[in-house]
Design a protein around this nucleic acid. Structure first.
Lengths: 141, 141
DNA sequence: ACGTACTGTAACTATACTTGTTACAGATAT
DNA sequence: ATATCTGTAACAAGTATAGTTACAGTACGT
């Protein structure tokens, strides 16, 4: 289990919350649908809350609900909230600085990385949580 | 060292090969520039060779050179050749099929994943190895 | 005030992926 | 033949994700 599926789980969570409207949803119930542990869900909810996408309430009859309407939550925000990192990583160990290529390639790769990340962000920005809801409901507008 | 830096290393390798023209480059020499082990380089060269981006020669005075001109190698091909996987992963464990959301979200996420990957591919396709070479050389056309 | 029912989070384990390294078989030029 | 490469298997080490247990903190109802 090394592949990062946090974005997928986050979307699953948010879809459930969207369907529950203003009702507080317990992490246990979400965990049952995602098929994982409630703590894993709460960890993700923490990140989503930090990104102002959800609001949690502690205590009895607590739980979590969306902070905004599904139409106002873009998938780009979700992606950023769960910090999925970059599309590709730079060198693990810094390249040889004595080599003209090694010395310059890092900056080039870094720029390229930003370009790609921006492109992914823009593509994700085309979708809202509402559109995901509609797709899950089978309404392929 | 879990973050996948194969794409970054592949670009580094290809840049070196591009600079060497028709000359055979030894994996040891590339390794010195990338600052890693020669076997790591040979593994990547194997993948790049499988994608018809480079040609290797075994035996004495062997090595590797580009299979095509730098202008004819798109970064999208490089990305696919080193099989960097997808931008985000689907659920590790399958969601609860008894839940209407759990039952349908996987297909939705899978489609979204394909959309994003396509978007990344198109963005990378805008760049060729030649453009990377120029950037490394400081020629920001 | 007190018990109940939640969230938030720390700590630990299991698993898997990437990278580094050694070792050696196979190929090729001299 | 010998030296010099690639190709690849096998294993160790490091690190990230995900699963799990445990418990402190918070809010509601009585």
């Amino acid at each position: 289990m090394a592949a990062n599926s946090q974005f997928a789980m986050a979307l699953h969570i948010l879809t459930m919350l969207a369907k529950s409207g203003d009702e507080n949803v317990k992490s246990e119930r979400i965990a049952a649908s995602v098929n994982t542990n409630a703590v894993v869900i709460r960890r993700l909810l923490g990140q989503l809350g930090h990104g102002d996408l959800v609001v949690s309430q502690t205590g009895a009859f607590g739980g979590t609900r969306l902070a905004r309407k599904p139409e106002d939550i873009s998938l780009c925000e979700v992606y950023k909230a769960v910090s999925c990192g970059e599309v590709f990583a730079l060198h693990a160990k810094s390249p040889n600085q004595d080599c003209p290529i090694g010395r310059n390639i890092e900056a080039v790769l870094c720029n390229l990385q930003k370009e790609i990340d921006k492109s992914v962000g823009e593509k994700l920005g085309q979708y809202s949580l509402q559109s995901v809801l509609e797709m899950v409901d089978g309404v392929y507008a």
